[in-house]
Simulated scan of single mutants.
Amino acid sequence: MASTDRFREKARKTVNPYGDGKTSVKIVETIKEFLMEDKINLMKKFYDIVR
């Protein structure tokens, strides 16, 4: 089945459901942008629960 011309042609036209394979690069770039431009504050907040 996998060796038939019909199957190979169908496989060539199939869209990858997981994207273009560059998702992790895009995520890293977005995180860098947020950190470099101070768009996000990652400082942990502490609360005094003892009164």
Results as ranks from 00 to 15, higher is better:
Y47R: 13
K39Q: 12
E29K: 15
R12H: 14
F7A: 08
M36I: 11
D20H: 12
Y18E: 03
L42E: 10
Y18M: 04
I31W: 11
E33C: 06
M36S: 12
M36W: 08
R12M: 13
S24Q: 14
P17F: 00
E33M: 07
E37N: 11
V25L: 08
L35I: 11
K26A: 11
M36A: 11
I27P: 02
L35R: 09
N16A: 01
A11N: 14
T14W: 10
K22T: 11
G21W: 03
D20G: 15
D5F: 03
S3M: 09
D38I: 00
M36R: 15
V15S: 04
V28P: 00
N16I: 00
I40N: 03
K45I: 08
M1K: 09
K44L: 08
M36H: 13
Y47N: 10
G21N: 07
E33K: 11
I31G: 00
G21L: 06
R51N: 09
G21D: 04
K32N: 15
Y47S: 06
F46P: 02
G21R: 01
M1R: 07
S24F: 15
F7K: 05
T14I: 07
Y18I: 03
I27S: 06
T23F: 10
T23H: 12
G19I: 02
Y18N: 01
F7D: 04
R51S: 13
E29F: 05
V15E: 07
P17H: 00
M1W: 00
D5W: 01
R51D: 15
V15T: 14
V28H: 02
V50H: 14
S24T: 09
L35P: 04
T14M: 14
M36P: 00
T4S: 15
I27Q: 05
V28R: 07
S24A: 10
S24C: 10
K45S: 03
A11M: 10
T30D: 09
T30F: 01
L35N: 11
A11S: 09
M43H: 09
D5N: 12
D5P: 00
K13I: 02
K26P: 00
Y47C: 02
V15P: 00
K26F: 01
E9T: 02
S24E: 12
K26L: 13
F7L: 08
M43K: 11
E9H: 00
Y18A: 00
V28F: 04
E29S: 07
V50N: 15
G19Y: 06
D38H: 15
I49E: 15
K10A: 12
V50Y: 13
N41H: 08
S24N: 10
K45T: 12
I27L: 09
V15F: 05
N41M: 07
K45F: 05
I40F: 10
E9W: 02
I40A: 11
T4W: 01
K13S: 13
R8E: 04
K44G: 04
R51A: 12
K13G: 13
A11H: 05
I31S: 04
K45L: 10
T4C: 01
